[in-house]
Simulated assay, not measured.
Amino acid sequence: MSDELVFYTNPMSRGRIVRWMLEEVGQPYRTEIMGFGPPMKGALYKAINPMGKVPALKHGDVVVTECAAICAYLADAFPQAGLAPEPGSKLRGPYYRWLFFGAGPTEASVTNKALGFEIPPERSRMCGYGSFSDVMDTLESAVTQGDYLLGDRFSAADVYLGAQIGWGLQFGSMERRPAFEAYAERIAARPAAIRANEIDNALMPEQKAG
């Protein structure tokens, strides 16, 4: 596709994940900074994302929201970047597994813990992620199988789930385990991750001043 990529974001949001993914993809894109409050909840933007939240991506006539979905879409739209295993390959299953593990159990368990929601042990079967400790143990196992979630191959799953681990360590919402720290440090050193952080960090004063 040759249609323009338009990225709707705010530097103080999960949009930082998509910025990193866009930098990994290496295709030109235009950024639209959305302010929190009325700009994000207004009719113009809600025509893009009815949730009134960022990030969102517009690629020609295609609109994609939700970080994991955007990462997966970009990986498939620009296969030359090598950020997703080929459909039908043995790595495709683990790739999907960790993308959706990030969007489901990781996101839910970390958010619930941060908000002080405690799942009673006898009700854990009702909860999709079981328990916070289950999720942490599973993540630790995942990041110790190799340099990346797919072993020696970096993918969009590392962008999405790796960003969550990095934030969890930074803000104290995840347990500070050596395996998490080593993995987060490794992927944060990628040139695209560094560029993405520099871009969003440079936008922060602009947002505060506005």
Rank of each mutant, 00 (worst) to 15 (best):
56 A>F: 07
58 K>G: 07
58 K>A: 02
60 G>F: 01
63 V>Q: 07
63 V>Y: 08
65 T>G: 10
65 T>R: 01
66 E>V: 01
69 A>T: 06
69 A>H: 02
70 I>W: 00
72 A>M: 13
73 Y>F: 11
73 Y>R: 05
75 A>W: 12
75 A>R: 14
76 D>P: 03
76 D>Q: 06
76 D>L: 15
76 D>T: 12
77 A>P: 01
77 A>W: 01
78 F>H: 05
79 P>T: 01
80 Q>V: 06
80 Q>L: 11
80 Q>C: 04
81 A>N: 12
82 G>Q: 11
82 G>M: 12
82 G>L: 09
82 G>P: 02
83 L>Y: 09
85 P>E: 11
86 E>A: 15
86 E>N: 14
86 E>G: 02
86 E>I: 06
87 P>F: 11
87 P>I: 06
90 K>D: 15
90 K>M: 14
91 L>K: 09
91 L>N: 06
93 G>R: 13
94 P>R: 00
94 P>K: 09
94 P>F: 01
95 Y>K: 03
96 Y>A: 05
96 Y>V: 07
96 Y>W: 10
96 Y>M: 10
96 Y>F: 14
97 R>N: 07
99 L>Q: 04
102 G>M: 04
102 G>F: 01
103 A>S: 13
104 G>I: 09
106 T>W: 06
108 A>S: 12
109 S>R: 04
110 V>W: 02
110 V>N: 05
111 T>D: 03
111 T>N: 07
114 A>S: 07
114 A>P: 06
114 A>F: 13
114 A>L: 05
115 L>T: 07
115 L>D: 03
117 F>G: 00
118 E>S: 02
118 E>H: 13
119 I>V: 15
119 I>D: 06
120 P>V: 04
121 P>Q: 12
122 E>N: 06
123 R>C: 07
123 R>L: 09
123 R>S: 12
125 R>I: 00
125 R>T: 13
126 M>C: 00
128 G>S: 10
129 Y>W: 11
129 Y>T: 08
130 G>T: 02
131 S>I: 07
132 F>L: 12
132 F>S: 06
132 F>M: 05
138 T>W: 05
139 L>D: 02
141 S>N: 15
145 Q>D: 12
146 G>W: 13
147 D>C: 11
147 D>W: 10
147 D>Q: 08
147 D>M: 15
147 D>H: 11
150 L>G: 03
150 L>A: 03
151 G>P: 05
151 G>F: 15
152 D>L: 15
153 R>L: 14
154 F>Q: 08
155 S>N: 13
155 S>E: 11
155 S>P: 12
156 A>P: 03
156 A>L: 13
157 A>V: 10
159 V>F: 00
160 Y>H: 12
160 Y>T: 03
160 Y>N: 12
161 L>M: 13
161 L>G: 03
161 L>E: 09
163 A>N: 04
164 Q>W: 06
164 Q>K: 11
166 G>V: 02
166 G>W: 03
167 W>G: 08
168 G>R: 00
169 L>W: 14
173 S>L: 01
174 M>T: 03
174 M>R: 00
174 M>H: 08
174 M>W: 01
175 E>G: 12
175 E>N: 15
175 E>H: 10
175 E>A: 13
176 R>E: 03
176 R>N: 08
176 R>S: 13
179 A>M: 15
179 A>T: 15
180 F>Y: 04
180 F>C: 03
180 F>A: 01
182 A>V: 15
183 Y>L: 10
183 Y>A: 09
184 A>C: 14
185 E>A: 13
185 E>I: 10
186 R>M: 14
186 R>A: 13
187 I>Y: 07
